[in-house]
């Protein structure tokens, strides 16, 4: 378990941060770390630790899949693109036609989160469609 040693600081940080359902396994030369973080800051912290151990993530020996837990009661999300507008599409996929846009920093309504990657949203103008979930931050 050489990889477990290499990334010990990361798994220790994950344990210390109280990551839920934390699972660490090595398979075919890759270490898989899965779990759920309480918030985005915790997730980002783990990625910083990862970046310190493996600068620029060039080793290809770790898949860090830590998602942020979202309260079922959450109904709104903020658009967290770098600066651009976020496309709202007819269906879940970039091959789907764009039906609207949400501005960077805008808070929109969450309709359905049953798809992990694409959330169904509604803008304040009433446009409804799917947005890439990685560019949305649930508002508590």
């Amino acid at each position: 378990m050489a990889l477990a040693d290499k990334y010990k600081a990361l798994t220790d940080a994950a344990t210390a941060a109280g990551i839920a359902d934390l699972a660490v396994r090595e398979q075919d030369g890759v270490l898989y770390i899965d779990g759920t973080a309480a918030d985005g800051a915790t997730k980002d912290h783990l990625w910083e630790v990862y970046n310190q151990i493996d600068p620029n993530f060039t080793s290809g020996d770790l898949v860090l899949n830590v998602n942020v837990a979202i309260d079922a009661a959450v109904t709104h999300a903020k658009v967290i693109t770098e600066s651009s507008n976020l496309n709202i599409r007819k269906g879940p996929g970039t091959d789907q036609p764009i039906v609207g846009k949400a501005a960077h920093g805008e808070v929109i309504t969450l309709v359905n989160r049953s798809n992990d990657l694409w959330w169904l949203v509604r803008t304040n103008d009433g446009e409804e469609g799917y947005c890439y979930a990685q560019y949305l931050e649930a508002q508590s």
Binding site: D28, V30, N56, F57, T58, G60, D61, V63, L64, N65, N67, D116, L117, Q134
Partner: peptide, 11 residues
């Protein structure tokens, strides 16, 4: 990493 890949070969 959220897409469940086997490995990410970052070149």
């Amino acid at each position: 990493s959220a897409l469940k890949p086997k490995k990410i070969d970052n070149k």
